[in-house]
């Protein structure tokens, strides 16, 4: 943590970056994002196991990126998101510097995003055991039971879109669900509207979702919507040789190959 503060201070003093995005203490033992612009405020920066919000979501926000070059405290999921964002031309070496935090909680600084990418590629995205078990359970359900499971789980969703707002990959200025003339998917949060919203979102994140759980952590109603994107990751692995964000990547959903398997289509 001292390393992080020291480095942030140096960067701001040298005007190497305009803002350092990191974590600070929040309400009731939570942590939250802080945007440090003055060297004397770097003492507020913290890092510990409570820091789970994906700060990459802020890198595409207007009022943040307009400040100038950003440095960001980035754990592995945040770095993955950054690489995916770089491949989608949302961040680059001239607007972003990564203050990495290794899985061992050590500060690691990268010269450029290519170095971040090499670091990210040392690790595979692994779905945690608890969610894996849940997914297996859902897989084994007969179709009608699975349908009912999702209808029930998604019923409370009131379409606050906190999941979308907290997702680093949902940076679209106008999300598909926001169109109402014509409506692509029903806007109201009734049964069909909720179902279509969540299917649409999961599909848009196939091959892009970095499994950071930001969506689930953001949901005020604790709807397990991350199971859908996790399922997409498993499919990507089984049918398309896996998924690892890469700066120059062929995007899973927008790349066609004649030998693509079609056996997962129901």
């Amino acid at each position: 943590m001292d390393d992080l503060r020291k480095r942030a201070k140096e960067l701001l003093e040298a005007s190497a970056v305009k803002v350092v995005i990191g974590y600070e203490n929040g309400t009731e033992n939570k942590t939250r994002a802080i945007f440090v612009e003055k060297p004397e405020d770097t003492g507020k920066l913290i890092f510990d196991s409570r820091c789970i919000m994906n700060l990459a979501s802020y890198l595409t926000k207007h009022e943040v990126k307009n400040k100038g070059k950003m440095a960001v405290t980035a754990t592995l999921p945040v770095m993955r998101a950054i690489i995916q964002l770089a491949s989608e031309f949302q961040v680059n070496d001239s607007n972003l510097l990564v203050l990495g935090i290794t899985p061992e909680s050590k500060l690691i600084e990268f010269k450029d995003l290519a170095e971040v990418e090499s670091f990210v590629h040392k690790y595979q995205i692994e779905i945690d055991v608890r969610n894996k078990e849940m997914l297996d359970k859902i897989d084994k359900m007969p179709a009608s039971e699975r349908w009912n499971f999702w209808i029930k789980e998604l019923a409370p969703c009131f379409k606050c879109y906190a999941c979308r707002a907290a997702c680093p990959m949902c940076y679209c200025h106008r999300c598909t669900v926001d169109f109402n003339q014509p409506q692509w998917i029903p806007v109201p949060s009734h049964e069909l509207g909720n179902l279509e919203w969540h299917i649409m979102r999961a599909v848009h994140l196939a091959g892009r979702c970095v499994d950071c759980d930001a969506c689930y952590n953001a949901c005020p109603l604790a709807i397990p919507l991350n199971l859908l994107t996790k399922r997409m990751l498993i499919d990507a692995k089984e049918h398309f040789g896996g998924y690892q964000p890469a700066i120059k990547a062929e995007h899973l959903m927008s790349t066609y190959k004649p030998d693509d398997k079609e056996n997962f289509i129901l």
Binding site: A33, S57, Y58, V64, C160, R164, A166, P188, A218, P220
Partner: peptide, 22 residues
């Protein structure tokens, strides 16, 4: 700066009354 621009605060609020007609 840290606000993500969602609807969570308004939707849980007892006095927020804004609506949309579809």
């Amino acid at each position: 700066l840290k606000c993500l621009g969602c609807g969570a605060c308004a939707y849980v609020c007892p006095t927020c009354a804004c609506f949309d007609i579809q």
